[in-house]
């Protein structure tokens, strides 16, 4: 899957925030704040094809957590992003 075109990660007064700015997101009208981990994942996969396993790998690489926990955390982030419509 991929981040839906038109969503941009911005830093608002130090807070990582996703804003819908593209042609198809003009009416999105919401702000999604990301914690540091989610912001890291976002930057890594922006513009690329990715799946849950890629996110888990990124978490293992950055935080040195074990594979099982990484899969669980990656699934949680991805589910949330899908639910909000940020990725497809």
């Amino acid at each position: 899957m991929k981040i839906v075109e038109g969503f941009r990660l911005r830093e608002i007064m130090g807070q990582a925030t996703v804003i819908g700015e593209g042609v198809n997101q003009v009416d999105f009208n919401k702000l999604i704040t990301l914690n540091a981990t989610a912001a890291y994942l976002w930057k890594e996969v922006e513009g690329k094809d990715f799946n849950q396993a890629n996110l888990a790998d990124l978490l293992v690489k950055k935080y040195g957590i074990d594979e099982e926990l990484a899969q669980k955390d990656a699934a949680a982030v991805l589910d949330k992003w899908i639910e909000i419509g940020l990725v497809k």
């Binding site: 608002i12 807070q15 925030t17 804003i19 009208n29 919401k30 702000l31 704040t33």
Partner: peptide, 10 residues
């Protein structure tokens, strides 16, 4: 801050 941004943005 974030609420302010959302308010102004719209």
């Amino acid at each position: 801050v974030i609420e302010s941004y959302a308010s102004l943005m719209t």
